[in-house]
Computed example of a mutant assay.
Amino acid sequence: MCLILFAYQVHPTYKLIVAANRDEFYGRPTAPAHYWEDHPHILAGRDLEKMGTWMGVTKEGRFAALTNYRNPDEKTEGKHSRGELVADVLNGNESLEHCMRKVETNRQLYPGYNLLAGDANELYHYSNIENKLHKLAPGIYGVSNHLLNTDWPKVKRGKAGLSKIISQNDESIVEQLLNLLQNTDPSSDEILPSTGVSLEWERVLSPVFIQSESYGTRSSTVLLMTDEEIHYKERVYGEGGIDDREYTINLKN
């Protein structure tokens, strides 16, 4: 994931709302959201190169998602794939806090990342760059390829859009969130962050929805969670057009 917008315990119906874009090289092999054959309780897309994932949920109501921390100078050779962090949280039997404490102790094994893990009643954020575990209070948040709530234009734009959609409390919330995630408006040069890539790439990476010849937004995902159920919709963008996958998990079964 390269942008995760989320609202935690601020909506009258949904305890957790997530709207997220996965940005990746177009050539990286990927499976869309499905129940994993080797772990049938996990619903997530899958990176077929490393067999991890960027975002998913379980039939028991556990959620996890991840963004990379952008640092072009970081040495990644010999380090583990960050996608296994999400898979490990979703496959874990320990408490969420215990899972995140374990991640904290293994921080040096992975390139820079932000990891979210939670359910309807608790939500955690950890970045191995900041190296501080946060149990999040109710609120509206955004994380891209820096730290939580970093004041990047796309994060500010996304959080403002999420706040507006939530305030309307409309039944079309899923489609409104997907529309928000498909915003291709670039940011002006004077407000672009400086992250160590060229100005040309800062421009390419500035919209909520990224497009270029080789790299861009591969999928958008919306999650709505109550105590009783999870609604999960993934929209995959490919050469053949749009492919929507939609699931509902009953948490009372």
Results as ranks from 00 to 15, higher is better:
Q9N: 14
E94T: 14
D119G: 04
D88I: 09
C99N: 12
S127I: 12
T195W: 00
N106A: 13
F209C: 00
D23A: 06
I191A: 00
G52C: 04
L96K: 03
Q9E: 07
D73K: 14
M55H: 09
K156Y: 03
E234N: 04
I230F: 00
Y232Q: 03
H231Q: 14
N169I: 02
E202Y: 09
T58L: 10
I17T: 05
P12V: 03
L43G: 11
N128S: 03
E229W: 03
E49Y: 14
R22P: 06
N71C: 12
N145A: 03
G139L: 02
K154W: 02
L5F: 00
E49P: 09
T53M: 08
L178A: 07
D23I: 01
L180C: 05
D38C: 11
N128A: 03
K156A: 11
S172E: 13
E171Q: 12
L177N: 02
K135Q: 12
L178Q: 15
A19N: 05
E37M: 15
L147S: 12
W36A: 12
A87N: 10
I17W: 04
T67L: 05
L123Q: 02
M1D: 00
P193R: 06
G61E: 05
N149H: 06
N93K: 11
K164G: 01
N71W: 09
L85H: 13
L3G: 06
R245V: 09
P29H: 02
D243W: 12
L199A: 14
H34Y: 02
E84Q: 13
S214A: 11
K79S: 08
S212I: 01
D47H: 05
M225R: 11
I249N: 12
D170P: 00
Y232P: 08
N131I: 00
F6S: 09
T184Y: 00
H146P: 01
E84K: 10
H125E: 00
M51T: 06
K159W: 01
I17E: 04
T53E: 09
M100G: 08
L224M: 08
S127A: 06
I129N: 01
M55G: 11
D244P: 04
T53G: 08
I165W: 05
V143F: 03
G241P: 07
M225L: 11
R70H: 10
P40L: 11
I210P: 10
Q9R: 15
E246Y: 13
S172W: 02
W152M: 07
A7Q: 02
M1G: 05
V222C: 10
L136V: 07
L178K: 10
S127H: 05
E202R: 10
K156I: 15
N114S: 08
L180F: 13
G61I: 09
R235G: 02
D244G: 01
